[in-house]
Amino acid sequence: MLEQYLNLFVKSIFIENMVFAYFLGMCSYLAISKTLKNGVGMGFAVIFVLTITVPLNYLIFEYLLSDGALAWIGPEYAELDLSFLSLIMFIAVIASMVQLVEMIVEKFSPALYGSLGIFLPLIAVNCAILGGSLFMQIKDFSGVSEAAVYGFGSGVGWFLAIVGIAAIREKIAYSNIPAPLRGLGITFIITGLMAIGFMSFMGIKL
């Protein structure tokens, strides 16, 4: 049992890395990776929100939206299939959760709010978050704990990616790059090279 979770965890960090394998959350990844400090802040915020929203959306999908999910209310609801609503539900849950998390963090941990605060609103439109929920819907997890592990693992994978690129970008500021390639261009190419590195994890199985 534990082995299965560990396998899923490692897989979601390295093999199915959100950034390098699916290009999710690229916009914030490119925009916020100029300094390492901001990269770390954004990375933690993504881990936080993914760990909460993926299991929550799993429960909503499993008990409200999927085919025949409403059977627990009564037999007359057993044939309803509301899965076409999943997109709107997921985004509503994510947007409201982000708002809620922001308020809770602000109230109970002002220090954490100070470092995460500005990144939290950005997360509502980070495709890595919605992507996590949509992949969860496709992957057909067997329980809520599996969905939570998947959410956490994807978050950690995203964190690794943004910390890596932020560190490289800080160093690369001192290098002599052809002028038209400076900034965005070289960042894309480095991300491509990092993705090649991450591909070497393919096929690892615990």
Binding site: F20, P180, I186, T187, F188, I189, G192, L193
Partner: peptide, 18 residues
């Protein structure tokens, strides 16, 4: 494979900016 998409976009940016 996915890395080449990134590198292709990087090259397009390079050409456009030069």
């Amino acid at each position: 494979l996915s890395p080449m998409a990134l590198i292709t976009v990087g090259l397009i940016i390079w050409i456009q900016r030069s």
